[in-house]
């Protein structure tokens, strides 16, 4: 098999995942796109491992071992990521990553009225306590 077939497919899948990460708004869809990118890397690793095991007599099978590691790390990543997304959703009522701008430095969207709206609520919280 021509090595360019899996390599090109892997590049296309990676760029599809890149587009999804940049263009999606829902945090879970961003996680799906990250999975696409990781799978593209996996395909590259497997293809080059199969090529090297025959062409260079490489018996270490490092590509397949790394693929297994990547799959496991991706599973761990999706678990932690979903836990974070659910915690954010529980606290904020949204999983839209465009609305989670608390650490942004922009002055036009968040800025003054943001602080103005939090100040009375902080006072109210102290008053109810």
């Amino acid at each position: 098999m021509h090595l360019a077939y899996p390599a090109v497919l892997s590049a296309l899948l990676f760029c599809t995942g890149l587009y999804g990460v940049l263009a999606r708004r829902n945090a879970i869809l961003v996680l799906m796109s990250v999975e696409l990118m990781l799978n593209a890397v996996n395909l590259n690793l497997v293809a080059f491992d199969v090529w090297l095991s025959k062409a260079a007599e490489e018996t270490l099978h490092s590509g397949q071992a790394l693929t297994l590691f990547t799959i496991t790390i991706a599973a761990a990543e999706i678990g932690i990521g979903l836990a974070i997304v659910l915690a954010v959703y529980r606290n904020r009522g949204t999983s839209d990553i465009d609305k989670l701008r608390d650490t942004a430095e922009s002055h036009d969207t968040g800025g003054p009225d943001h602080d103005a709206s939090t100040a009375p609520q902080a006072e109210k919280a102290e008053a109810t306590a």
Binding site: C15, L22, R24, L29
Partner: peptide, 16 residues
């Protein structure tokens, strides 16, 4: 579902 910077994302992805 899609953010406002969709065309920038498409440009980056196509270039990559």
């Amino acid at each position: 579902a899609d953010s406002g910077n969709r065309w920038a994302a498409l440009t980056v992805a196509l270039a990559a």
